[in-house]
Amino acid sequence: MEIKVLGTGCPKCKSLEKLTREVVEKNGIQATITKVEDITEIMKYHIMATPALVVNGKVEIKGRVPSAAEIKEVLSKY
């Protein structure tokens, strides 16, 4: 599974990245996690608020930092 965390480097974006890594590690999920900081790259996902969580190219969460439980639920769909 390919996970991308979109964000220009604000505190919320960093906490989403950290949280996602924790969830992936804790649940032994096979995934690569990349942080996308380039704004033109970010805009390709058609979002208007950061941070965002993208799984296999699909925007799952945008504009907020979800709970660990919610991230786990989102990832379990894949």
């Binding site: 480097g9 604000c10 974006c13 704004i39 970010i42 208007m48 608020a49 950061t50």
Partner: peptide
């Protein structure tokens, strides 16, 4: 809902 770090997008 809007935070200033989302100003660019």
């Amino acid at each position: 809902p809007f935070c200033s770090c989302s100003a660019i997008p």
